[in-house]
Design a protein around this nucleic acid. Structure first.
Length: 803
RNA sequence: GCCCGCGUGGCGGAACAGGCAGACGCGCAGGACUUAAAAUCCUGUUGUAGUGAUACAGUACCGGUUCGAUUCCGGUCGCGGGCACCA
């Protein structure tokens, strides 16, 4: 009796073996393949089975590429700065530098349980000064190129995390991290001018092999629109108000204007009688949080008392203020066409403002309008010289026509805002700027980088809008690098996204202290070929990384302008009923016990078997038994047959080729759950054959080679049991023989009126006449009625249509 | 409100390109082995009717295209996700 499957002994043996004899070697000749995981932040809770799945998927893919003879770049690192790590530290009362280091070593141990082929020599950690030196260096370069600038403005503020947030970090008016309602706070902030890359960020999405969903989310986030800016002269003043509209075709229907309460002219426009009301409205609007602003569906507003002139027809239109107009989009002012815009319609109804239709729907004006007609479809009416034109055509031409008339210009707009980059927190990269009373903001010289984060006792956020660093006077007080006079350091830190926006560049040259990455290495090993991670970063990290990459390309650090060629988003593993795994819900499944009881190989297979990798799956521990049974049976199959010297029959030839064909196709299309079911299915077939006679060695070896990327330990062990002395990963990916898969006879279904009645076995190249005859014969007595049509699709179906 | 995706047994899920729906696995039921249990192996497992071969129904619902629809088209309902006053 051969040895039973002992996962613990086997896995321990091969882990040690791989450590001493690495299987992924860069010999300088092989083509590279860069397969990257989204690096984790070192949470104190450790890994759960959901994290595992992503890492298993990327490792399977990496090992597959390895077997296809690539030099595989498959690194891992730590996104250790930022709010989650700091909040954890505060909660536990441990200094973040210590708690993150502890968590990193804990998680690293867990990640090593996966037995992925990570190259730990490449490891990076965003909190390592040797790493963040370059995070700061990029900021300095952006500052020098005018892409990092300061601005005093009301920004999103999380009262619980006590810091400012980027637009991307506010989800439904709440803080992305802690769920607290986000308020506004007026702060002087460092901003990154991501908007100057808006067009390229949008256009280059076409180049990427990414899920449609993610591309669309980025497209929507960038939110490019085409339209016109139109100038409305203020009555009795020399100034005019510029509005942005995507519907210049409706300009004749503009019956009033609305300015955001924060608009620069808002106060000046108030007449004596209206002044008190206007100032009251502006004050109240400033107190509203973004949640209030979202939730208050009911329109509010105040009349300024002033009027403007419609530049086309000279009509006098009242100027109102309302918080439904956003101050930071377009010009912060809009022209209102209540007949053709829902929001303007609602506002006009509430404040009893005139409604003029300028598009005739189906050739006539709508009587008793109860809602706005918002489509650009119909003939123009009440529109002076535009009357009779088609609205959809006019919409496209109007911007130029307005430009010709000298009352405005054609323009585009984006929803994307510049990136609020300052955080009033301790645990981040200090922004390397010195504020000099004479020179203004001056970058810390490159020779002084990294600018170290000072080690302090008190790192709690202050909540005042000042960073905790502001209290460290010896650190704050310095001299200006330009003029040498006394100056103060910037005390805000960078957001968590700063390090993660470029870390993938650093892995391939992680110890270089002269450059961010050597150009030679960058040209050889970058960009990333396959990027695997959750979909939650669709607009945050993935947009920021693309922005950074384009900038670094522009300044010549790298020679490409998109970081990630292909993106795969794995689904989430949830607890029962689709509830997200979390410590507070008590439904976290740790991989540790499963690895102990079933082995790493079984857990790897089961992580894939639970469902399609791109979809969310509910975790159910029980299913792993099935995978473990498969492993045992396959083990027994090989052990029983390895020395049998069984003949290779035609049947076995066919099975071998079909196995390679099926597994490869499923793997290529990332249908990893069906790869595993395929292994089970073919194993069952071979067990059957084994009972009848035996399975030849080549078939067994082929199976082992295919299984290797999925279950590496057992595959290496069986590979050696089959008499091989080297690693199974050095034998390439198996190929199949088309001829061996050909069938002489094919069983096909015989239908009557499209419903299958019987099956019949036909020769491979059976002609129609013979096929129909055999089909009818097989139907026998079931064939009733008059035959009106006979359909034969070779290899697929016979269908007899009767009446 | 707008945009995107998805609805298949008791459960997770499969079905290449419009051609035998339910592969594979879990669970469950019965059997073998065992003093017994676990493990293992075998058989069955969409529903209804029938001892049975078999018949009919069936991929959220209604309709269409087709010899034939889980697959394509239109509509309805349900679930999930994204955006959310962006003019």
């Amino acid at each position: 009796m051969a040895a039973p499957y002992n996962h613990r002994a086997i896995e321990e043996k091969w882990r040690k073996h791989w450590e001493e004899n690495p299987i992924n070697i860069n010999d300088g000749k092989k083509e590279k393949y860069y397969c990257l995981d989204m690096f984790p932040y070192p949470s104190g809770n450790g890994l759960h089975v959901g994290h595992w799945r992503g890492y298993v998927i990327s490792d399977v893919w990496s090992r597959y590429k390895l077997m296809q003879n690539y030099y595989v770049i498959h690194p891992m690192g730590w996104d250790a700065f930022g709010l989650p790590a700091e909040n954890y530290a505060i909660k536990m009362g441990i200094h973040p530098s210590k708690s993150t280091a502890d968590n990193v070593s804990k998680i690293k141990e867990q990640i090593q349980e996966i037995a992925a082929i990570y190259d730990w020599d490449m490891e990076v950690n965003t909190t390592d000064p040797a790493f963040y030196k370059w995070t700061q260096w990029i900021f300095v370069k952006m500052f020098e190129h005018g892409l990092a600038y300061q601005k005093e403005m009301p920004i999103n503020w999380c009262p619980s995390c006590k810091t400012g947030l980027a637009n991307e970090e506010v989800v439904n008016g709440k803080c992305e991290r802690c769920g607290e309602d986000v308020t506004k706070k007026n702060l002087n902030q460092w901003m990154l001018k991501i908007t100057s890359y808006a067009d390229r960020l949008l256009a280059d999405l076409d180049k990427l092999d990414w899920p449609q969903k993610v591309k669309k989310m980025q497209t929507d986030w960038i939110g490019k629109s085409h339209g016109a800016e139109v100038d409305f002269q203020i009555e009795g003043k020399t100034q005019s108000i510029t509005v942005y509209t995507t519907r210049p075709d409706t300009l004749y229907g503009a019956t009033f204007m609305v300015l955001a309460p924060e608009h620069a002219l808002a106060k000046d426009l108030a007449t004596e009688e209206q002044r008190a009301m206007v100032e009251d409205y502006i004050y109240k609007a400033s107190l509203k949080s973004s949640v209030d602003r979202l939730q208050d569906k009911e329109k509010t507003g105040v009349f300024t008392g002033s009027y403007a002139v419609n530049p086309l027809n000279g009509a006098k239109v009242p100027i109102w203020l309302s918080d439904y107009v956003l101050a930071d989009y377009g010009t912060g002012a809009i022209m209102c066409v209540p007949a053709h815009d829902d929001r303007d319609f609602e506002f006009a109804k509430k404040f009893d403002l005139p409604i003029i239709q300028v598009i005739a729907k189906d050739g006539k004006e709508i009587e008793n309008m109860t809602e706005a007609y918002t489509e650009a479809a119909g003939t123009m009416i009440n529109s002076g010289d535009w009357n009779g034109m088609e609205s959809s055509e006019l919409k496209l031409k109007a911007p130029e026509m307005i430009e010709e008339k000298g009352v405005g210009k054609k323009t585009t707009n984006y929803k994307l805002r510049d990136w609020v980059f300052s955080r009033q927190r301790y645990w981040g990269e200090p922004i390397p700027i010195i504020h000099c009373p004479d020179c203004g903001p001056v970058a810390v010289p490159e020779k002084d980088l990294p600018l170290l984060l000072p080690d302090v006792e008190s790192y709690q956020p202050t909540g005042t809008g000042e960073s905790p660093l502001a209290d460290i006077t010896d650190w704050v007080n310095t001299t200006c690098p330009k003029c040498g006079k006394a100056a103060k350091r910037e005390t805000n830190t960078m957001p968590q996204w700063a390090g993660s926006s470029w870390y993938f560049l650093r892995y391939i040259d992680s110890k270089n202290d002269k450059e961010l990455v050597s150009r030679k290495k960058a040209d050889s090993y970058l960009p990333v070929d396959m990027y695997i991670g959750g979909v939650e970063h669709a607009v945050l990290h993935l947009l920021y990384s693309r922005f950074y990459t384009k900038f670094l390309n522009d300044i010549g650090v790298i020679d490409f302008d998109e970081p990630f060629h292909k993106l795969f988003n794995q689904g989430m593993i949830t607890g029962k009923n689709g509830i997200k795994m979390s410590k507070s819900k008590g439904n976290v499944v740790s991989p540790d016990d499963l690895v102990r009881d079933y082995g790493c190989d079984s857990l790897r297979l089961y992580e894939l078997f639970v469902g399609p990798p791109e979809l969310d799956s509910e975790w159910d521990d029980r299913g792993i038994d099935g995978v473990y049974r498969f492993m045992t049976r396959f083990w027994n199959l090989v052990m029983e047959n390895k020395d049998k010297n069984a003949q290779k029959t035609n049947e076995l030839k066919k099975i071998q080729s079909k196995l390679v064909y099926d597994i490869t196709n499923r793997l290529e299309s990332f249908s990893l759950n069906t790869v595993v079911s395929g292994f089970m299915e073919y194993n069952n077939k071979l067990l059957d054959i084994s009972k009848k006679g035996g399975v030849d060695k080549e078939t067994l070896e082929t199976f082992v080679r295919l299984l290797a990327p999925f279950a590496p330990h057992i595959s290496e062990e069986l590979w050696s049991e089959l008499g091989n002395n080297d690693s199974v990963f050095h034998h390439g990916w198996p190929s199949y023989n088309e001829k061996d898969m050909e069938e002489d006879e094919i069983e096909i279904a015989v239908q009557m009126n499209g419903k299958t009645k019987v099956t019949v076995t036909l020769p491979k190249d059976c002609g129609k006449e013979e096929a129909i005859a055999k089909g009818k014969e097989a139907l026998g007595e079931k064939l009733t009625g008059t035959v009106v049509r006979e359909i034969y699709v070779p290899g697929r179906i016979i269908n007899i249509v009767v009446k």
